[in-house]
Nucleic acid binder design. Structure first.
Lengths: 195, 195
DNA sequence: CGCCGAGTTGAACTGAATCAAGAAACGTGG
DNA sequence: CCACGTTTCTTGATTCAGTTCAACTCGGCG
């Protein structure tokens, strides 16, 4: 797939905000197809994020380098919007980088085009509002998990919510995403042979 | 203070988004003065959040009950906007409650008025966009702190960034905000007599 | 075939929690 | 303003979840 179509985009956005198809058709013209190899860095540390990437195939992680380890802050899959939102929002460089975890295809929206959409259509702002709200809620859920749950509970919870994530993602990334070591993941799996 | 004035509101919002004073004057008419006693519950668990509260005096915490403890997810002070944003955004009840930590005065904006502002002025949406973006960034910073820093480092970092918070807030709340126990806070303070 | 990164397993260690008990601070009513 | 009860804070002893370090296995790939 190298060209997007309004109905398809609409179906992706409907969970956030419903808008007429012709708007999405118009919107699709602003999107650029890109693809990345497995392990390719999409946005490196100390670069500014210029794109929101809609994942068509593959998966992308947002990482940060600290204490000689990559810490995974978020994982994105098909139909997710992947982005270092922190940098995208404030327009600054930071310590985060994004990396394709598999061979990955995306449709990218440049920040300048996003801004243009806001100015042209109030609906663009409403979509973006919905998106940032959903980002906030997801982050708060991560915070609650880290504050209230043990390593094992966090793993179980992820397993229940996104079992396919567990299968497709190297366990070292899952480990750092949950704030634990690969060794601990390994032990949790052993002690709990629910697949 | 029981009535707000455009220039004052403008000064509060300018860090998020700049807009003309007359808009803020108009906006101020939608705000209602409320006050709460120390420890008064503002929004209880299993209630829906209907307001964003601009704190004029005092402080407010967002808590959740889990494992026989109140876990503090956020602390707000003068000139902050306090809210259970999770419930405000999705309009649902949840496990969170908000509580005044001191005698507290706020100007509240009802959700219906916020929505009205969005519909009447594109600028209202832009402000809200800025606010949700800032919420996301703050939450991600909390996530990064929990993933990368030790209890002591988190305490030090909070001390450096908001020393007045440490002085005004009961340490049990600071403890749960940082994801540690009051006993550990006490030991950290002892071992590090930087005030 | 041999290498190399990823995953596993074991043993020792440690940061922080838990449990328990006492001291200090707070506020409420007399 | 003081006395008393309640809550918060401190301190110590113990425990434990999860890390660290190190050695080994496995599977994929050049």
């Amino acid at each position: 797939m190298e060209k997007l179509e309004g109905h398809y985009i609409k179906s992706l956005f409907d969970k956030y905000f419903e808008a007429p198809v012709d708007l999405w058709d118009q919107f699709s013209e602003k999107m650029v197809y890109r693809q990345f190899d497995k392990n390719e860095i999409i946005k490196n540390t100390h670069e500014t994020e210029h794109y929101i990437d809609l994942i068509i195939k593959g998966s992308i992680g947002v990482f940060m380098w600290a204490d000689n380890h990559n810490k995974c802050l978020d994982l994105y899959f098909e139909e997710d919007f992947s982005c270092d939102f922190m940098s995208f929002i404030d327009g600054k460089q930071n310590e985060l980088f994004t990396q394709a975890l598999e061979k990955t295809e995306v449709f990218s929206i440049a920040k300048s085009n996003v801004n243009e959409l806001y100015d042209e259509h109030i609906i663009g702002l409403k979509i973006y509002r919905a998106a940032t709200e959903s980002l906030f809620i997801h982050k708060q859920e991560q915070q609650i998990a880290l504050l209230n749950m043990t390593a094992e509970e966090r793993y179980q919870s992820l397993m229940d919510e996104k079992p396919e994530l567990i299968l497709r993602t190297p366990s070292k990334h899952i480990a750092s995403y949950l704030g634990i070591t690969p060794e601990s993941i390994s032990r949790i799996r052993k002690s709990n042979p629910t697949k």
